[in-house]
């Protein structure tokens, strides 16, 4: 299963990913993404893969990554 990995050293909570992928990521009170299922690296359902790729592409800090098959 493909998972989403946040590079916290790069993330500055710009909020693009939480707008593009609200199914998996919601902003916390400081604007940083928090996985909606509270896992460290949320699994990406196949149906959401294109959206996840788009979020990865659009991260202004290049902090979002897809890992796994």
């Amino acid at each position: 299963m493909t998972r989403l990995h946040v590079d916290w050293t790069a993330c500055q909570g710009r909020g693009h990913c939480t707008e593009l992928l609200p199914e998996l990521l919601a902003p916390d009170e400081w604007g940083y993404p928090r996985s909606t299922d509270d896992t460290k690296e949320p699994a990406v359902p196949v149906a959401l893969l294109p959206h996840a790729r788009r979020a990865v592409r659009h991260c202004p800090r290049l902090a979002l990554h897809l890992v796994g098959p």
Binding site: W8, T9, C11, Q12, G13, D28, G31, Y32
Partner: peptide
Amino acid sequence: KQCGPCLN
């Protein structure tokens, strides 16, 4: 002081 959730 580099990761937002920890820093805040």
